[in-house]
Write a protein that binds this DNA or RNA. Structure first.
Lengths: 191, 191, 191, 191
DNA sequence: AATTAATCGAGACGGTACGTCGTGTCTTAAA
DNA sequence: TTTAAGACACGACGTACCGTCTCGATTAATT
């Protein structure tokens, strides 16, 4: 599956990186999260364990790298209303987290609880997503339908909190529409 | 620290259970979650490993037992307004989770991501807390200030989602008042 | 080759010990000393590495145990003269060290240079052999052919020194008779 | 500690050799033999690992080079008697091997048990020393006090064997005089 | 003067073995 | 029958060196 790869000098070999992430991704799909051990990944990627630890000092960092590689830039479509946008976001998240490549995420959150490096990496990613999520509120503001006295950050966090909660308790089949309605009703100007 | 305890015959020894939970609690406080291994708990409690496994088949079950022992029935005081109640709940949670005995909870959530038994136990606990949380909405309803078309469950989940999010990303110093305001504004009748 | 072996309670399982020593002996014969790694021995013996380390804390200790198991009580035959006895002893040692089960010994000496536990174990064994070697001088004394002003210990050490030297430099084909003659000539009464 | 050294063209840089041997010697003194790894030496000498391997293909070769650099031509003083000479030789060896720069030697013997290149190098060195040792017997012969039917080689080997034995078992505080007496008594003409 | 060739440092690479730790199962001997 | 104790097989951990490699630089000898 993987060819022999030697050093390409005193610098990182991108082929090795790819092989490792591929291996981790495959194992993840085949055996689930608990199968993704540094040992197994190294063996599958035909890489030395030291090589893994050189670039991904913890298992969490490796998982994070695997997850980020998949971030197929989830764009939030403009549905015309804030409630519709929130609903779409939730649905897209629930859907993504239900699929094999997204299933890792809850384990990343879990691992980040006892791995400070990962926590930092996750936080970076989370803030990035949060900013991205902010766009739907900007759109609502431009439409002039948004109450101006609600901080966009707060609203985005509320959406994210609901999403994470459902992810972590395994309720990805929840009613996104209902959730969206409950959240959004106080954020738009009463019509 | 713990005295010698032998078998008390062909039945469960409650002293042993206490000793085990005490040991786990102490280790948790001293070394953090990663120190709480079945091995270490057994040794500290002067209990056989088999004894542990008999009653708490997984590490997660043991952690959950430790956490539940501490559930000093958090009551939600009536502040007179829903927003005040939500703010109080968040503050009380953030405070509890910041203290040593509460710090475990995020690790329980984490562990439950790969331990189905624990997930079930946590879910039971979570629903219990959710029901308890529902009381503040009942009170609001009795006051007549609640919009009737918002499901109580949904609102409680939104509060819980915000709380968990802040717990899991280590932002227990967040502005509970602001969060409460953002959430609640759509749930009460416009005055 | 080896069946499954579980614990037999809170005490050492002699079957395990035997399996480990057998495995080490076999590997030694097949791959030589450098093949005798704790890892390989554990795998071959179907034993956990922890089990090995429990009973033989270092590789040297394990090698020593392997060697001692083979100590087929080398008796020194009475040839009638001290020179004959010394020659017989040297020949028997050179022969033993040339055979597979004896070849380990030089590696034990080597390992003992950087392993204090092993050094101690080897020293015990060495003194034991030295005492045993002393018998040939007692016999000579009884025969009345021994100069009384030469300490038996010193003579035994001289024999051992010659033996070890030849072992360590790989000259086990040396002329035992000549060595014996050179050493002994000052130890017996001039006839 | 060591300045930057670059290539001096298509030939060996003698500064590098010196830096490497210095580094090895220092590490040896500081951390003992087990600290002398190719990796550590290279790092300390600010040399590339490939450079080390180019000139000293094995660890043993490097150790041997370190030892030989120190061979401060031990001369054997003429004490007037063979016994005195042997005693002086033993004392000088025991003393040398007790000092930091001599302590390596036992590790060289040890390493040579599993490193054929080193074994060869050590054997060369040993024969050289053996020849040197022969001088004291030549002197005795010239004095006319030596039994003529004892081969000089054999006697030298007996002395060396005793010396090595005491080195390898850590008995460098042994009674050189006694050893000398025991060995020599058969080699000189009965007075 | 330009080119070639060997050397240098650095350090990444695939590996192997290390020694430790935790898992969950097992047996014993005592209560 | 349950207990404390702890040995057992297993497997992952994270580290240390191994010996090989490729790089980009430096410099001497050759063109």
């Amino acid at each position: 599956m993987t060819e022999k790869r030697a050093s390409i000098g005193a610098r990182r070999n991108p082929e090795t990186e790819a092989a490792v992430l591929d291996a981790a991704t495959e194992i993840l799909a085949e055996k689930g999260i608990s199968g993704v051990t540094m040992e197994a990944v190294a063996k599958r990627a035909r890489a030395g364990k030291a090589t893994l630890y050189r670039w991904w000092p913890t298992r969490g960092a490796l998982l994070m790298a695997v997850y980020r590689r998949r971030k197929q830039e989830i764009c939030h479509p403009d549905t015309g209303t804030l409630e519709g946008d929130v609903k779409a976001v939730l649905e897209s998240l629930f859907d993504h987290w239900s699929r094999p490549e997204g299933r890792v995420f809850r384990h990343i959150i879990a691992a980040s609880q006892s791995d400070d490096d990962l926590r930092e990496a996750l936080e970076d990613y989370r803030l990035e997503r949060l900013a991205h999520l902010g766009e739907i509120f900007e759109r609502a503001a431009q439409r002039g339908t948004l109450s101006d006295d609600v901080p966009a950050q707060e609203m985005a966090r509320a959406v994210m909190g609901m999403a994470w909660l459902h992810l972590l308790v395994g309720r990805l089949d929840a009613d996104a529409a209902g959730i969206a309605r409950t959240l959004v009703r106080g954020w738009v100007r009463p019509s």
